[in-house]
Amino acid sequence: MEKRLIDVALLACLIPLVITCGSKQEESIASPIDKDKIKKEIQAKENKFAELYNTGQLKSIGYYAEDAISFSQNKAPLVGKPAIIEYLRAGIDSSSRGNKIAFTTNEVFISNDGNQVVEIGYYNLADSTNVSINTGHYMVLFEKRNGNYVVLRDMSACDMPLQ
């Protein structure tokens, strides 16, 4: 009887230990973040943004979250997707037609769960003869919502000399 009591007590101590070890092992098996895949996904978003901007189809830009904030030089932050789109629209006038913007994703920094990405990149605005008229760098904070990355915050800085 005493041996059976010891066996039951030993078993009662081992069960939680086995369960605890098993759950820790499952945590360490979490799928790794594929940085190259996410970088390509972010670059594809930049390419689509540039395509829509260059063709003036700003209504179709799904790039920004509704609660996005955009920071630029020499102006107050633009709060909300409608304000950002309106600012972009105002920047397209008859004198800028034919200009093309392009973005290059240089680096991405990805949260451990893959739900947030900070992108650091380079932009080039060229005229219709492909001469650069504005270049610079930018940072963007993306968040995954409903399975897609959208911009929560962005900021840019021109690297051309002041005139």
Rank of each mutant, 00 (worst) to 15 (best):
E2G: 04
E2W: 04
K3Y: 09
K3D: 11
R4Q: 12
R4S: 03
L5T: 07
I6T: 06
V8N: 12
V8G: 06
L10W: 12
C13E: 07
L14E: 04
I15M: 11
P16Q: 01
V18N: 06
T20Q: 13
C21H: 09
G22D: 09
S23W: 15
S23N: 14
K24L: 14
Q25C: 12
E26C: 05
E27D: 09
I29W: 05
A30L: 13
A30W: 00
P32I: 06
P32F: 09
D34G: 10
K35L: 02
K35S: 03
K35D: 03
I38N: 04
I38C: 02
K39W: 03
K40S: 11
K40L: 06
K40R: 15
A44S: 10
E46L: 07
F49I: 11
A50N: 09
A50F: 10
L52P: 02
L52A: 01
N54K: 14
N54V: 13
T55F: 11
G56A: 04
L58M: 12
G62N: 09
G62H: 04
Y63I: 00
E66K: 06
I69H: 05
F71R: 05
N74R: 13
N74E: 15
K75W: 12
A76C: 07
L78S: 10
P82T: 08
P82R: 03
P82H: 13
I84F: 07
I85S: 03
E86Y: 00
L88S: 06
R89K: 11
R89A: 13
R89H: 00
I92F: 08
D93S: 04
S95N: 12
S96N: 07
R97M: 11
K100W: 13
I101C: 05
T104N: 08
N106R: 06
E107G: 01
E107W: 11
E107C: 03
V108Y: 09
I110Q: 08
N112R: 02
N112S: 10
G114A: 10
N115W: 00
N115L: 08
V117P: 01
V118L: 14
E119D: 09
I120W: 11
G121N: 02
N124E: 15
S128P: 02
T129C: 10
T129F: 09
V131T: 13
I133K: 15
N134I: 00
G136A: 04
G136C: 04
Y138L: 02
M139V: 12
V140Q: 01
V140T: 09
V140L: 01
L141M: 11
L141P: 01
F142Y: 13
K144P: 03
R145M: 08
N146Q: 08
N146H: 08
N146A: 03
G147N: 07
N148Q: 11
Y149I: 03
Y149Q: 05
V150N: 07
V151E: 02
R153M: 10
R153F: 12
A157E: 14
C158F: 00
D159Y: 04
M160C: 02
M160V: 00
P161E: 01
P161F: 04
Q163M: 04
